[in-house]
Design a protein around this nucleic acid. Structure first.
Length: 697
DNA sequence: AGCACGCCGACT
DNA sequence: GTCGGCGTGCTC
């Protein structure tokens, strides 16, 4: 290294357990601004890197050894903005992952493969194509009149938008609106303001399924602005293209799933997180970040308004929006449905009153079947919802007690009647369904319980002549299948739509007047403390599918079949009273010291041998006890998750509970490096990982 | 994670 | 005698 050369820290994709946690150090003849994209050597490989803290190096460069020089610069692109670097830096430290690992994971994979000439060619071609296809001339766009609540919400956004960039920074806005109350219209108006001010709008949605319809709505409203989407359903080349358009400031609207929160946006002016409560916002592998929480952080960083929208906000968000000295979010209620539509009447059916035949209760209560018949006769549509796909969750031999367990997992293999298979939903292991019991040869093996496939079959028997369609992960698998089925519903070619929670999300079914929840009880008594919150959200969302057309709304209803009709969750559901439900849940959480009144992390360990995972977690717990921040933090004993073995690997997890985020972070910052060192002394440990703010425990 | 180097079995 | 099994170890 020449004397005049500078030391740069560069984020590269170096896996965490390699011990190369922070940014790496390289020499460079010239100073390069942070965010510069370049190629750097690592071992024998040539990798994409990002100049991190510039010449003021963070971390400790290895001493004694000569630093290797940086490689070629990808200088046809502007460097990543300081705010983007700060967001990634924060996320990496908060979720305990290496900056390089996270930074490179949130860039389009295609970018990692390109050398400077290759990238320059792509960019030039993209810009040429862009100039060759100008946006259509501005046409007058119809904008619906906003209702009074929507206007109030928009006014609050405008105040926040006007304050953006100033101090104090605008508080995040919680748009609390029932389904059909016109949240999207508020997003559109807010985006219109941002775009008119020359800014970019970032809109996040929970699932890819929901992007096409929202994309269509934004595209129709803003024909004079370029819109791109960012989600994992894109081809690698599309994803690179969309990312480049965002980064180059050539796209004005970016619509994405959770990965979208990391979209580089030089003129960011607004962030919308639609259905902010949705668990899909939490990444479940690698860096387990919450895109919702990072969106709030990004809004704070870039001094830009954030709108969180939901009919059933997460309790974390809700608590921040409660009036009082600790209120951090502004709550904007939308209680009225657009066009005066009413929420469906919720009716509970006590399944306990039904007689059983052969020990089994009927699928649907006679009263519910009557309701379905009436709706069909009236030419209206119904939605029957059961959160379990397949024909039956397990096959059972009544003679010897055999059950269709998965040989690789601690789970049952699900009977899929249509494809004649037993399939494990955890590891994918699939076999043809046996003709006879594999243990005793008994020919009479029977399905136990039911999934959507069986429900569809039983509905066909109960409702002869009815046009029934099923929508779940199995029927939506083929390309275009989901779209085709939804189109059939919209066209009125379906009388009864059967499905898993997939049918409850977002789809604007105008002609559905009856929703039936077949058996939602199991979540009431699940060990996961968030199960009631999720169930309430799911049922509210399902209820919201009905009565969107004001003409029929008055008569729309939702049946909930339950063995626990007196449960308080259902009482709150009957009155559509989210506030009451949230208050009771928050009281329970506070009494139990659970989030949002405490902060959690989950340390997971995986091994072929449970004893190895157990020993490692116990050693980890012992280590935590002696660390700064360790006092006042509770480390619970290791326990297996609901499905303890997957694909032959045993899993254990250990809950860490801290009174505050700061205390948790203080422990983690010391604990993580120690855990890396601990690994070598435990042979046979397959994997370990920390999940900060876990959703399910 | 890649991709080395490194020390023991069946092949042109 | 080599080609190659994947066991440990390193990468600014």
């Amino acid at each position: 290294m020449a004397l005049s050369d500078l030391t740069l820290s560069v984020a590269v994709e170096a896996p965490q357990h390699s011990g190369l946690a922070g940014a790496l150090h390289y020499s460079s003849p010239q100073d390069l601004p942070p965010g510069t994209l370049l190629r750097v050597p690592l071992g024998k490989r040539d990798l994409l890197g990002i100049v991190w803290h510039g010449s003021a190096s963070d971390g400790t460069p290895p001493d004694g050894t000569q630093l290797r020089p940086v490689g070629a610069l990808l200088d046809c692109l502007p460097p990543m903005a300081p705010a983007w670097l700060a967001l990634v830096d924060f996320a990496a430290s908060y979720y305990q992952r290496g900056v390089g690992e996270l930074a490179l994971a949130v860039l389009p994979p295609e970018l990692r493969k390109l050398d400077p000439p290759g990238l320059a060619k792509r960019v030039a071609r993209l810009l040429k194509k862009l100039d060759a296809t100008p946006l259509p001339p501005t046409a007058p766009v119809q904008r619906p009149q906003l209702g009074p609540e929507q206007q109030a919400a928009l006014a609050a956004f405008r105040t926040a938008f006007a304050q953006a960039g100033a101090t104090p920074r605008p508080a995040p806005l919680l748009l609390h609106g029932v389904t059909g109350s016109g949240k999207t219209e508020v997003y559109l108006h807010a985006a219109e303001d941002a775009l008119a001010a020359g800014r970019q709008a970032l809109v996040l949605v929970p699932e890819i399924n929901l992007t096409p319809q929202l994309e269509a709505r934004f595209a129709a409203r803003f024909p004079q602005h370029r819109l791109v989407s960012l989600h994992s359903g894109l081809t690698p080349v599309q994803r690179l293209r969309h990312w480049l358009l965002a980064h180059l400031g050539r796209a004005d609207i970016v619509l994405g799933t959770r990965m979208g929160v990391f979209a580089p946006l030089p003129r960011l002016g607004l962030i919308v997180v639609d259905e902010e409560h949705d668990p899909s916002y939490k990444q479940q592998e690698g860096a387990r970040y919450s895109a919702r929480d990072l969106a709030v952080y990004r809004g704070h960083l870039e001094r830009v308004p954030v709108i969180l929208g939901s009919a059933t906000p997460s309790l974390e968000t809700w608590q921040h929006a409660l009036p009082g000295p600790r209120q951090r979010y502004q709550r904007l209620p939308l209680a009225e449905r657009v066009g005066g539509g009413a929420l469906p009447r919720v009716r509970l059916f006590d399944m306990g009153v039904l007689p059983r035949t052969n020990g089994q209760s009927p699928v649907l209560a006679p009263m519910v079947v009557d309701s379905l018949r009436q709706r069909i006769a009236a030419g209206e549509q119904s939605l029957v919802f059961l959160n379990r796909r397949g024909y039956a969750p397990v096959l059972h031999c009544a003679d010897c007690g055999w059950k269709s367990g998965c040989p690789h997992c601690s789970a049952w293999r699900v009977f899929h009647k249509g494809e004649r298979t037993l399939r494990c939903h955890h590891c994918g292991f699939t076999e043809r369904v046996p003709r006879a019991c594999p243990d005793c040869g008994n020919l009479d093996i029977a399905p136990l319980g039911r999934g959507t496939e069986k429900l569809e079959e039983q509905l066909a028997e109960l409702l002869p002549g009815a046009r029934i369609a099923r929508l779940d992960a199995d029927t939506a698998r083929g390309k275009g299948q989901l779209e085709a089925r939804l189109a059939a519903v919209h066209a009125g070619d379906v009388d009864v739509l059967v499905g898993t929670q997939m049918v409850t999300k977002g789809h604007d079914f105008r002609r559905i007047t009856l929703v039936v929840a077949v058996n939602p009880d199991s979540a009431l008594f699940a060990s996961d403390f968030r199960a009631p919150e999720r169930l309430f959200a799911l049922l509210m969302q399902a209820a919201g599918r009905a009565g969107r057309d004001a003409a029929q709304a008055g008569a729309s209803e939702m049946w909930v079949q339950t063995w626990h009709p007196q449960h308080p969750l259902y009482a709150a559901l009957k009155t559509h009273d989210f506030a009451a439900f949230a208050a009771s849940q928050l009281a329970e959480r506070e009494a139990a010291g659970l989030p949002p009144f405490s902060h959690l992390a989950l340390l997971r360990a995986e091994s072929r041998d449970v004893a190895v995972a157990q020993a490692w977690l116990e050693a980890a717990a012992a280590l935590a006890a002696g660390l700064p921040g360790g006092d006042g933090v509770t480390v619970y004993p290791p326990v297996p998750p609901a499905v303890s073995k997957v694909a032959g690997i045993e899993r254990l997890q250990m809950l860490v509970e801290a009174p505050s985020r700061a205390r948790l972070q203080q422990l983690l910052v010391h604990w993580m490096p120690a855990l890396h060192g601990l690994r070598s002394r435990h042979k046979g440990l397959a994997r370990w990982a920390i999940d900060v703010d876990p959703l399910a425990i």
